[in-house]
Design a protein around this nucleic acid. Structure first.
Lengths: 247, 247
DNA sequence: ACGGTGTTACGTACGCTGTACGGTAAGTTG
DNA sequence: CAACTTACCGTACAGCGTACGTAACACCGT
């Protein structure tokens, strides 16, 4: 399963995403099974825990056997990603049926937020290009439809969707990081440790605005920031901005 | 340089960020020199290329010598991050002096965009909590000031800033990934390879809206998407949304 | 039923990572 | 000059992705 030219690799990757899988051999391995195993590991212990060895072990198989079905770790991650996005909507019309375009976009944003809660590792995925598999393509169609015919140009439709999805991803990323870090510290524990040290170390800093705002935010949320609040607030700001562009 | 309790480590990290450095020994090593070396490596070859060995080699020093000045890689990255954000504004009043709050936010967004162009690895940094060093703290104060007194609550000020900065980071991330990936392929080369294969593989998909929009966007930008356009467009949408909230 | 052949599975190995440990050598002090 | 302190770093370990070569199996023509 050696690497070839970039073009050949790319073609191979796309065919793989679209279901051109090698047939199972005598161990009964299949691509979907490998993807599922990887997803389970990632859900439970993060993307870093998904090593070829661990996935293979989880399937009761030697590490190198995986390479007969998947060219490497990058393609495995792409398959996992596309599968995850593919489970987002039962039907391509789901967002459209949520109501007007505003309600539809709230639905889309909420669904993506929940997806990132279910699969936080999606936020760690870092592919150089979009993984254009059936799941991602279907998601794009479903999410664009509610924006069709409301007075936006095609380019604006794409930009608005990208803006909203980017906002969701950004909020969800902050949210995921704040839930529990690798030291096992909660947000409050962290802040209780950091706060006094900071006060000591920046005794003679001059921070009139950020000092006041930071204190207010801290009192309001018992933390340095509240991603969930930022998520809903930012979404409404964006929707208002789009509305302004329509009128 | 062994790890201790989480609280002790955290305190140590903050003191390190705020300039409590060990004195240089006989090799002449200093914390700033290590940070600079790491930053140079990251600028040139990405964050993944910053290994303790490479940094040490770049400084003509043994790998383990670094641990006398920096507790580990995480703290090195935090130092690099804070230093990078610290170079963003000459003065804490720079954004305020750009004009009204809208102009100020455009200035802030543009400056951050350019920072991410100069240091793309900042977008790969993944700390569980914000690295609250002098650079980050000063940046927060400078960016909050133009939003003070325009009719937003303290919490809203923080949320608006987070929204804008998140948008910049998201756009810049997409931008950075699209310039050149690890296969050395340009955006156009990638699309020329992917497009025909996709057409072949999803012959019987039903994609009325995304098909049309994708084609328009592709024709407009000669690519699947244009991050720079999304950046400016999204920023204006957000500013309009904030404006609507003020009136 | 059997031997040959092509495919599949996987053991081993290489180069890389972060960093713990302990020895060495340089600088400082008595 | 001798002794002590400490900065430096060579070595080692456990982990990673994956290239390579071999062993075990399934199938097929005879």
């Amino acid at each position: 399963m050696a690497r070839g030219t970039p073009v050949a690799d790319l073609t191979r990757s796309i065919y793989l995403l679209w279901g051109h899988h090698p047939k199972p051999g005598r161990s009964g391995l299949t691509v979907p099974a490998i993807v599922e195993a990887g997803t389970e590991l990632a859900d439970a212990h993060g993307l870093a825990a998904v090593s070829m060895r661990k996935v293979a072990e989880h399937l009761g198989v030697g590490a190198m056997s995986l390479y007969g079905y998947v060219p490497g770790k990058e393609d495995l991650t792409a398959l996992m990603t596309d599968a995850a996005y593919g489970e987002l909507y039962d039907d391509v019309t789901a967002p459209t049926e949520a109501g007007d375009w505003r309600e539809a976009m709230r639905f889309v944003a909420r669904r993506n937020w929940e997806l990132y809660e279910r699969h936080p590792w999606l936020l760690e995925v870092r592919s150089p290009r979009p993984d254009l598999g059936p799941g991602v393509v279907g998601k794009y169609e479903a999410e664009l439809r509610p924006l069709d015919g409301i007075g936006l140009s095609d380019v604006e439709m794409d930009s608005v969707l990208a803006l909203i999805l980017g906002h969701v991803a950004d909020s969800a990323r902050t949210h995921a990081q704040h839930v529990r870090d690798n030291t096992g510290m909660t947000d409050a524990e962290w802040w209780d440790t950091v706060s006094p040290v900071l006060g000591q170390v920046m005794r003679d800093e001059n921070l009139p605005v950020s000092g006041r705002v930071g204190a207010t935010v801290g009192a309001e949320f018992q933390a340095a920031t509240n991603p969930e609040h930022n998520f809903t607030f930012g979404l409404e700001v964006i929707l208002d901005g789009v509305q302004a562009r329509l009128g």
